[in-house]
Amino acid sequence: MTDVPADVLARVGVSCHREQSVLPVERGAITTFVSASHNGNPVYWDAAVAEQVTRGAVAPATMLSVWFQPLPWVPGRTEEAVPLRLHFELKARFEYPEAIVSDNVATYHEPVRPGDVLTSEQRLVSVSEEKSTRLGTGRFWVIDVEYRNQRDELVAVERWTSFGYEVDAA
């Protein structure tokens, strides 16, 4: 018998929060990103090498979430925008004051290229029973985020494992 509430169990396996990328995939952002890690890989700096090796310009795989990060301000928005919205919904549902991401694994499929328009969907994979850890008492939950390009080709799947919790009273 699980102690996970029925309304939360009902969300397991159900896709939600389909979103289109905030920003289009473009070379300027790619250059800024690789500059931040002093990455001299010529596929990002030399169009001829990119054509030869990666069959055209590509974005670094680890840049995936960048295209979906909410901007701090956009006209007309009245509520705070958060990435990985399902995570924050679970945190609020369980009324946990704290939540941390403990693990993130991304699997990369089709390369992301300038001009691509990406969409993402979030899906709850599992929620644990309440348990005590050195951080406090709470639950682990696992969320998959699936990314596709404008041709509906799978680009990547990110799996986020988080722990929502309340610090135990001393």
Binding site: V53, T54, A61, S102, A106
Partner: peptide, 13 residues
């Protein structure tokens, strides 16, 4: 080198 293609990356801080 540039022909390397990342298939999977897991990070735990």
């Amino acid at each position: 080198g540039p022909t390397a293609r990342l298939g999977r990356l897991g990070i735990a801080m």
